[in-house]
């Protein structure tokens, strides 16, 4: 590891101050940032550790409203009993990120702020029409994820949590890369009070996206066979050594059916 300055923030306000030092980056679980620093894909001069700020951790379920603090680990999301009742698709999603040790450290806030095009949480946030809460404002998920590793976050802005209304039904299915467990294609399908939302991760050339085509089909009937015959265009899909754009286009449709079946299961 190259030389870096470590700071531990005691509060969000403290973190915001510390973020002004040099070319600082926030450190939460570090499950992406530290490996990225080792390979020099990221090279911050300073790290501001926000993982011990108690106010940023925890899951609250109040009626249909779910709020999750940014520093809540994947493990704590996956094993939260109230959340398992309110939105089992999300606990299922969290329980399949990385491996057990990664889930003990990695956080929801880190995942959505990084917006890896193959990360699981962005798909859930988009399909659940979640609100991303920062130290400065609230942003709808549809306006938050803006491209590959790109978000609407401005300099010095810190994700403090997310909130959403528990959907009537939701399911998540992913085809994981067998080595990294990142999604080669992952689909989160949710039926909420404002209709059906289908969000796709791992496959889109510009990161997480909604499939209006599949949403329209599922709005008529929220059942897997409603997706029969839907063929997604390969032109907007990622292609790499793991899967070609055509393969991914097909895989997204397969995962979407599984997600809807899981939601109805």
């Amino acid at each position: 590891m190259y030389s870096v300055n470590y700071h531990r923030a005691s509060s969000v306000a403290d973190a915001a101050k510390l973020l002004k030092s040099g070319d600082a980056k926030l450190l939460s679980g570090g499950m992406t940032l530290i490996p990225a620093m080792k390979t020099r894909l990221a090279a911050p001069s300073d790290l501001v550790d926000i993982s011990r700020i108690a106010a940023l951790a925890g899951v609250t379920v109040s009626g249909k409203t779910v709020t999750i603090g940014a520093a809540t680990t994947h493990h704590d999301v996956a094993t939260n009993a109230k959340l398992a009742k309110a939105c089992p698709a999300l606990t299922h999603l969290a329980s399949h990120i990385g491996d057990p040790q990664v889930r003990h450290k990695g956080t929801i806030g880190g995942s959505i702020a990084n917006n890896d095009p193959a990360a699981d949480y962005p798909a859930a946030m988009l399909a659940l029409d979640a609100t991303i809460i920062t130290n400065k404002r609230k942003v709808q998920a549809s306006k938050f994820f803006t491209g590959l590793f790109e978000t609407a976050l401005k300099d010095g802005e810190i994700v403090t949590g997310v909130s959403f209304t528990a959907p009537a039904k939701a399911g998540y299915a992913k085809f994981p890369n067998p080595a990294s467990r990142y999604a080669i294609a992952g689909v989160f399908a949710a039926k909420g009070k404002d209709g059906v939302r289908v969000a796709v991760t791992g496959a889109g050339e510009n990161g997480v996206f909604r499939s209006k085509e599949m949403e329209a089909a599922l709005a008529k009937k929220f059942e897997a066979p409603a997706l029969d015959g839907i063929k997604l265009s390969a032109s907007d899909m990622m292609g790499d050594l793991h899967a070609s754009p055509e393969y991914r286009a097909n895989l997204v449709a397969v995962m979407a059916k599984r997600a809807v079946a899981a939601a109805n299961g």
Binding site: Y6, R8, L27, G30, M31, I34, P35, L47, D49, S51, H75, P100, Q101, V102, H104, K105
Partner: peptide
């Protein structure tokens, strides 16, 4: 009390 990968954590984080 939780298993973690110590190659992906700074000693300072564990303080």
């Amino acid at each position: 009390g939780k298993a973690v990968k110590s190659c992906t954590m700074l000693a300072a984080q564990a303080s």
